[in-house]
Design a protein around this nucleic acid. Structure first.
Lengths: 216, 216
DNA sequence: TTTAATGTTAAACATGCGTTCAACGAAGAA
DNA sequence: TTCTTCGTTGAACGCATGTTTAACATTAAA
């Protein structure tokens, strides 16, 4: 197992940073292929290390995943705090850093696997949105609802969608990369957030369903 | 391989509907666990059949997947056409049918795997939205944009989000099932589609980023 | 009745996976 | 020096997977 204490050059045969290299390689692999399709042998190969060493440092594939979850979670939280003075999540800045790009991809994969960490992050994100709803964000104020938690969950889900479907949208629109894709979407998202989607409400109709949503 | 001709009782040992049973079992398994985590043995067991027979009928796991993709795609398309007279996608009606629920879950999984069928469906969905933007939908008219394709892609992605994150939202809100979850979200989605998210625009600020979006 | 074709199964095959194990080598401790 | 610790490896183990194969039973065709 990976030693918890981190002293300098404490171990016989060098390399306490080997474990870090393995973890970074794992994050990249997980971010690209997801947890299930990623193999320990693939991670070991990417880190230029034997498969056994991966297990030796992290105990198991699940243990490695937990370590990666923790790392990515705090890395993103810290980056978010560092960029808090921007009025947006600073797409241009976040996506300029390839490491942060990988971390975000990792989180997206994490959100889809039915894992505990993914759920925790999702609820953390809802909390964030709920705070914005209550206190506003960078001068913006938000529409209010009596069911603020439900409202926050709804907005959080929609806010994650562009990143979640970035690859599919990129293929559909022929954009070159994620940044290009999000740039293309930005004005439509702004318009949507400011004014909604619908332009007019139809006259009353005899439909039995009172809901006006548009879900599949 | 599954015979293409479908005559009545043409085969020696009964059961041309066995292949259908296998396919339905496969759709359920794929919808629940996704393609990668689903095993042929699991499908065979669910269909009360030997693993070899699954291969015999569909050639390979990938072949079975293709068959399921085709089936689900046309099933959903037909159901959508049948319910076209409703002003919404008729959540109450669609989700009352467990088979349709399974089909929708299948599609969500398909949308996440980097498969060709998933991409085709996503673009088909964008087409649908684009048509609504151009011609309106059930009396509603939509906000117009010069980049209609980009607008349609953006709206399509957001419209898929509630279903995509249904499980996570359900856990976060403590709702009992998908239908309950979407019912809880419905008023917020309606408000969002009608009025957007933001209530006020802040004064001009010195931020270099003119985008007002809220992405992670 | 014989023949051929088809649906079906049980068992085996080949492969790739996560993991374990024995050994090696380098470095600090004695 | 000798001993012990520990990072590291290569090989192997056990298992689950997708697929193949040989056999069997049943039924239409001859």
């Amino acid at each position: 197992m990976r030693s918890t204490k981190k002293s300098s050059n404490r171990s016989p045969n060098s390399s306490p940073e080997t474990a870090d290299r393995i973890q970074q390689a794992a994050i990249r692999e997980f971010a690209e292929k997801g947890f299930t399709k990623t193999t320990i042998r693939g991670i070991a190969s990417a880190a230029e290390v034997s498969p056994g060493l991966v297990i030796h440092h992290f105990g198991s594939k699940e243990g490695l995943r937990s370590a990666c979850d923790d790392y990515v979670f705090t890395a993103i939280t810290e980056a978010k705090a560092a960029n808090a003075h921007y009025s947006t999540m600073a797409m241009e800045i976040v996506f300029a850093d390839p490491v942060m790009r990988t971390n975000i991809d990792y989180l997206m994969k994490s959100l889809l696997d039915p894992s505990e960490h993914g759920q925790r992050y999702f609820e953390h994100y809802i909390d964030l949105v709920e705070g914005y709803l209550a206190d506003g964000f960078a001068g913006y104020t938000f529409r209010q609802s009596t069911d603020r938690r439900g409202q926050a969950a709804t907005i959080a889900a929609l806010a994650l969608a562009p990143m979640m479907f970035a690859d599919r949208i990129q293929t559909a629109l022929g954009t070159t990369d994620v940044k290009d894709t999000l740039t293309r979407m930005a004005p439509h998202l702004l318009d949507l957030y400011l004014n909604g989607v619908l332009d007019s409400i139809p006259d009353v109709e005899a439909d039995t369903d009172p809901n006006g949503d548009d879900q599949p």
